[in-house]
Design a protein around this nucleic acid. Structure first.
Lengths: 339, 339
DNA sequence: CTGTTAGCGCTTTCAC
DNA sequence: GTGAAAGCGCTAACAG
């Protein structure tokens, strides 16, 4: 015979202690206006019964849940996974929990996730990357603080108060270009995400800038635009190019996985790295340090960006005004063997 | 002047359409007892106003949210990230959302996460790996369906109805042992997680079994127990062993990252792979195919396990009885260059 | 310091 | 087919 455990609510505690539910609520939320004695009685009752306040009831009443949503394009990508992890950790310490939604790089999903988050009364939303710039023009974002991480906010007419936190991608591209040209490369290629995202475009422009300072030109035929940012697309593209005899003395790939795909293609065509071709990636995921030829790459301060995002959200939620709208982090070149 | 948008609730729709909120609720949930005409009126009002029902109010009322919780030890590990991704996807199609909690391999966090999930009235919980066997003896798990993925459930007295889905780890270890001994190795080492988890122990035992069938013994001094399952711990341990002159002709590492750490250590000591030492990993993460020496490893059917987990949860929530308590998936050896 | 009370937005009897 | 009304568990006036 299984004992049927009835869920303990605030009323249960109230009855057990002979104190009104209002008072119980006060001690739970430490809102003052109760005696030390009362507090002790209530707290011990809470402890003994393992009572945990119902988050839904509280959320419904306060019209706001003690959690924030985070929308991420691909949790399987270590770069994004790391961000969510740092965010979750920092938020948890502030007693917020995190709703992680993976969009699978799919704009429709993004919308549904957004609605879902709104329906759950999240206190705020962190948007990590995602589709192109224009997706958000068609619908309004939920009326909560929203922070764009890793990408700039859309330029909608309805709201211009978005906050953005990201790496200086232009600088990152510039660092990559500098590193490559300083090792004597003068026939560079670029492998990038084909979507018109600021992060990608900025990296491209920074890269071109570094090259142009040395009179090196990035041929448009040397720009490979990938439908996704994973390993296989780059592998296929570069393999194909190599098969057609198109090769370069250096490759800047706007993502580490893209770089690793390119690397595999080059190696399979018996091209020595860094002897005959150099590669620079972006993100500094842990695989970069353990791939065929340890990858020189651009490191982003994930921890710094994540913690700042949380700090800002907490500030906003606590009524502090946040004046700045854009926060830019410095990228740093991590030199390994591939370049 | 910013237009203040008041949130649209079921009452708003009710007033707009001149229909009672009860009826609005019925059409939202498609509960019948409304005319086709009423339905159309209500639905168009819902559409026009972009009304999305408040999930909290509904959850409070029904005492159950349309979401399930998933507890994962490290979202940064591609193996776990993949699981969560598949689960989230499958669940989303069934109109459930997913609360992902990363425990950072920390048992205390696990408890707090569990309480959090209970407080949010999740419909079910999926537990992925985590600490040792005994953590759950001290507290009761929330009164919702719970599925243990990747590890067996604890043997608590209060509940024995847990469901478990995992790879046949014994078989996985056996496959690794067979592969190694068939390439002529007879001086094997094992690098494993030090925690007494079934997954780890089973892999060990399966490995020993394969060896013993050929009269090969795994010396206890050749078993390296790691405090965590990441790359660096294995790197440090194997480097240290090598420095002391302790080397082996083969290494079975119970995790790909462990294997990659060991690989780096061996390579740095100028040991050829697979010439002088062979390595087999476990999990088949994508890095395994792109590390220094492509890693031979044991593949787990992540997609299959994830989808099954979701299917079972949905079945349970829909009142179908699930008779089996344990579901075991076959591992398969993926042969690459390291062994 | 403490208790009473009115909802938060929704689902669900129960009448009609 | 439809509406009125109760109440999920909690917080926040308000009154004492």
């Amino acid at each position: 015979m299984q004992a049927v455990k009835k869920p303990v609510s605030i009323t249960t505690i109230s009855k057990m202690t002979g104190v009104s539910i209002a008072t119980v609520s006060r001690v739970i939320n430490n809102n003052g206006r109760f005696s030390k004695r009362t507090r002790d009685i209530v707290q011990s009752a809470i402890c003994e019964n393992g009572y945990v306040p119902n988050a839904l009831a509280r959320g419904l009443r306060k019209k706001r849940m003690q959690n924030i949503g985070i929308i991420v394009p691909d949790i399987t990508n270590e770069f994004f996974a790391n961000i969510t992890r740092y965010i979750q950790k920092a938020l948890f310490e502030a007693d917020y929990s995190t709703l992680i939604y993976d969009t699978d790089e799919n704009a429709d999903l993004e919308l549904r996730h957004l609605q879902n988050l709104a329906a759950q009364n999240v206190s705020a939303i962190i948007f990590i990357a995602g589709g192109g710039e224009d997706h958000y023009k068609n619908y309004e974002l939920p009326p909560v603080p929203i922070i764009f991480l890793d990408r700039k906010p859309p330029d909608t007419s309805s709201r211009k108060d978005y906050i953005s936190i990201h790496t200086d991608n232009y600088k990152g591209g510039y660092l990559a270009g500098t590193a490559l040209k300083e090792s004597g490369c003068n026939n560079p290629a670029l492998v990038m995400d084909k979507r018109q995202i600021h992060t990608q475009l900025d990296r491209l422009h920074g890269f071109e800038k570094a090259l142009s300072e040395s009179r090196i030109k990035l041929k448009s035929s040397a720009i490979y635009k990938m439908p996704s940012i994973d390993c296989n697309t780059a592998y296929t593209a570069i393999s194909g190019a190599l098969a057609k005899g198109k090769s370069y003395d250096s490759y800047f790939c706007t993502t580490d996985w893209l770089a690793i795909g390119a690397m595999t293609a080059l190696l399979e065509h018996n091209i020595l790295i860094p002897g005959q071709a150099r590669i620079v990636g972006f993100d500094n995921i842990s695989t970069a340090n353990h791939c065929r030829v340890p990858l020189t790459t651009i490191h982003q301060d994930i921890k710094g960006m994540s913690n700042l995002a949380v700090k800002i959200i907490l500030d906003i939620l606590n009524g502090k005004e946040v004046k700045e709208k854009e926060f830019v982090f410095e990228p740093v070149l991590v030199k390994r063997q591939s370049a």
